[in-house]
Design a protein around this nucleic acid. Structure first.
Length: 370
DNA sequence: AACACGTGGGT
DNA sequence: TACCCAAGTGT
């Protein structure tokens, strides 16, 4: 039973009016739970405070597929350095990439910059307060548009993230697997969205999923909706939502070139603007393929002809969709080093570069073994 | 529609 | 160790 029609039971059909009342009652109970268990998060307006759309937007982008503890320090750094969307729009993209380094999904940073500039240039520096207009902005999809509408502007919107999908799947005992069942979950979620306190309700749903209706070992005893939860009634709460098995990750292999110049600076370069780690800084390397590069490939990809020496060990890293094994070779650049394509960065300035985590690993490996 | 796109923490 | 998971979006 995955649609929202009346269940085929002996109970009398629930009238529309009655189900509306039940939803309103459920929302009130959730909001009461929220008021009693409100978490203090860096981006969350305190009771009585007016939400700042810029901070709501920034936090929602950072929280996409990202845990609260991971996002929090980045949010503080960004808001301290760029307190307004105007300030962010005026900053060079490269400054954002340096500040975003380590947080992952770097398209978010590129879209963040594009979005800030669009808001300033086309919306007078103010975020639109309607879902449809927000949806037009780079980096803002269905979830984020609804979240900003509800949380920043106090307007009704159905906010559906992974937490909400889980809560709804359990309440209604939806057993069909994700992602195909997403539209159904969205419809069901919409039937419970109240007119009152849209922002608090959205955050309450997500908090409920994050702290009570958790993926494993849900704390049903603490749940304000436990008595109406179909999955709990049938003892399958922890198994929901069901998900299709994911394809396993292939392994790719490559070799990175740790090249030092006579001044003791290391050669880095900027990656392509789009795609994996787009616009970020890297230690030059061969292509990353299934098979490790042979001697010919090492010569073909070397940034400058030099006598390369392999460092012991290997850098391992796992991206969203593949494993990477990276060997590291090192050399001193001889005559002609000034003409090499890339940038020479003093070792003590590496922390000012837009180095993604995988490259931080390469740097650490080289410094430890070179 | 399915896949590309990061990272670090939990079990 | 290996897999799952986290306030998704773009193509």
């Amino acid at each position: 039973m995955t649609d929202d029609s009346s269940p085929d039971t002996a109970a009398p059909p629930v009238s529309e009016k009655m189900s509306e009342q039940m939803s309103a009652q459920a929302a009130a109970r959730l909001l009461s739970w929220y008021d009693r268990n409100r978490r203090d998060l860096p981006w969350r307006a305190k009771p009585g405070e007016v939400a700042d759309p810029y901070r709501v937007w920034l936090s929602e982008i950072m929280l996409q597929q990202t845990t609260v503890p991971a996002a929090a320090p980045y949010f503080r750094a960004f808001t301290q350095r760029w307190p307004t969307v105007q300030a962010l729009a005026e900053a060079p993209l490269d400054d954002l990439l340096v500040a975003w380094a380590g947080l992952g999904y770097y398209a978010r940073a590129r879209n963040l910059h594009a979005c800030a500039r669009t808001v300033v240039e086309r919306h007078g520096g103010r975020f639109p307060d309607e879902e449809a207009a927000l949806l037009e902005l780079p980096g803002i999809g269905a979830y984020t548009a609804a979240a900003i509408t509800a949380i920043a502007f106090g307007r009704k919107a159905t906010v559906v993230d992974g937490n909400v999908e889980r809560v709804i799947a359990r309440i209604f005992a939806v057993t069909d697997p994700l992602p195909a069942v997403k539209p159904t979950l969205r419809r069901l979620a919409a039937t419970r969205t109240p007119n009152q306190r849209p922002g608090d309700y959205a955050q309450a749903m997500m908090d409920l999923g994050a702290t009570v209706c958790t993926p494993r070992k849900p704390k049903c005893m603490l749940c304000p909706w436990s008595d109406g939860c179909a999955a709990r009634a049938s003892g399958i709460a922890e198994t929901l939502p069901r998900k299709l098995a994911k394809a396993d990750k292939p392994t790719r292999r490559g070799t990175a070139y740790w090249l030092l110049n006579p001044d003791g600076a290391v050669l880095l370069r900027r990656r392509a603007e789009r795609g994996l780690l787009g616009g970020m800084t890297e230690v030059p390397s061969t292509a990353w393929d299934e098979t490790a590069p042979d001697a010919a490939a090492l010569l073909a990809h070397q940034p400058i002809a030099a006598g390369w020496r392999a460092l012991p060990g290997m850098v391992r890293h796992t991206f969203s969709h593949f494993h990477l094994e990276l060997g590291v070779v090192t050399a001193q650049a001889g005559a002609g080093w000034r003409a090499v394509d890339g940038m020479w960065v003093p070792i003590d300035q590496l922390d000012q570069q837009a180095l993604p985590s995988v490259m931080v690993k390469v740097v650490r490996h080289a410094l430890a073994h070179a």
